[in-house]
Simulated assay, not measured.
Amino acid sequence: MSGEAAAGEAEIEARLAGGGTPLTPEALLARLAELGIAQTTIEHPPVFTVEEAKALRGTLPGAHVKNLFLRNKKGRMWLLSCLEDRDIDLKALGERLGGGRLSFGSAERLMRHLGVRPGSVTALAVVNDPEGAVQLVLDRALTTLDPVNLHPLANDRTTALSPEGLLAFCRAVGHEPALLDMD
């Protein structure tokens, strides 16, 4: 790929569907502070899988999540945040969500609608979706475990929030989450 083509691709990748640029992790943390939502963030080497996160975190307390960015054939999109050890049956989940057959959204779609790359997917990324194109779905268990540990838009750090703080943030950015019993 030529340098010009790579620069054009990077510019496209950095633009959200609404034309804006994605928030940085620092801007996200500032937004949490503006909203009065307490958080604690630690830095660590980048992690891309649940297994890597488990190996790295040691005894970090609280709920640890995995996130799935999903779509159906009609172009509807969902962001599922659930406890990291949940087994997810996409066929059953699609039926429960009324979305039919679900598949994973592409990296390009993920960047365009949530402003993050694979490995950094997080419920907090709904801040980059002011149009509300992505439906946030939270495992109801995340509302009962304190703290909830999430990536703050980058997979080289972890942010711990109270369940109330997570819900307040999602609502403040216009994404009332659907709560789903995943037991």
Rank of each mutant, 00 (worst) to 15 (best):
L35K: 09
L138R: 03
E51K: 13
L35S: 13
V116W: 01
A168T: 03
M1K: 04
L79Y: 03
A53K: 01
D129M: 07
P118Y: 00
V137K: 05
E26Y: 08
A107H: 06
S106N: 05
R86K: 15
D146R: 14
L166P: 10
R171L: 04
L150D: 01
F48V: 00
E11M: 12
E13M: 14
E108T: 13
L161F: 09
K74A: 15
A30R: 09
L167Q: 04
L167I: 08
T49I: 10
E13S: 15
R171E: 09
L150T: 12
T144K: 09
R71C: 07
A160L: 14
G75C: 11
L79F: 08
M111N: 02
H44M: 03
A17C: 06
S81N: 07
A14L: 09
A30Y: 05
P177I: 07
V121Q: 07
L68E: 02
S2D: 15
T49L: 10
L97C: 03
C82V: 12
T59K: 14
H113P: 00
G19C: 09
L180W: 00
C170T: 10
G20H: 12
N155W: 04
T59F: 12
G3E: 13
F48H: 13
S120K: 10
G18P: 02
V121H: 01
L60T: 13
R112A: 10
F169T: 08
R117P: 00
S120A: 15
P25Y: 08
L145F: 13
E131Y: 09
P22D: 00
G8D: 13
G115K: 01
L80Y: 01
H113Q: 05
H64K: 01
L136R: 14
R117Q: 02
Q135L: 00
L167T: 02
E43C: 02
E43D: 07
T144N: 03
L138M: 03
I88L: 08
R76N: 15
D181E: 15
I88C: 04
D87K: 11
L142T: 04
L124S: 00
L23E: 04
A7Q: 11
P22Y: 05
E11S: 09
M1E: 12
D156I: 00
A5S: 02
N128S: 09
G8E: 13
E95R: 12
C170M: 05
I12V: 15
A178Q: 14
L161N: 08
N155T: 04
F104Y: 11
Q39Y: 15
G165T: 06
D89W: 13
L23T: 03
E51Y: 06
M77Q: 11
N149I: 08
L97S: 00
D156G: 07
R57N: 04
A160S: 14
A55M: 12
G98A: 10
I42S: 13
A125W: 01
C170V: 08
H175S: 06
L28A: 15
D129N: 09
G165E: 02
V134T: 08
L35M: 12
A107G: 12
H64P: 06
K73T: 11
L166N: 01
A63S: 10
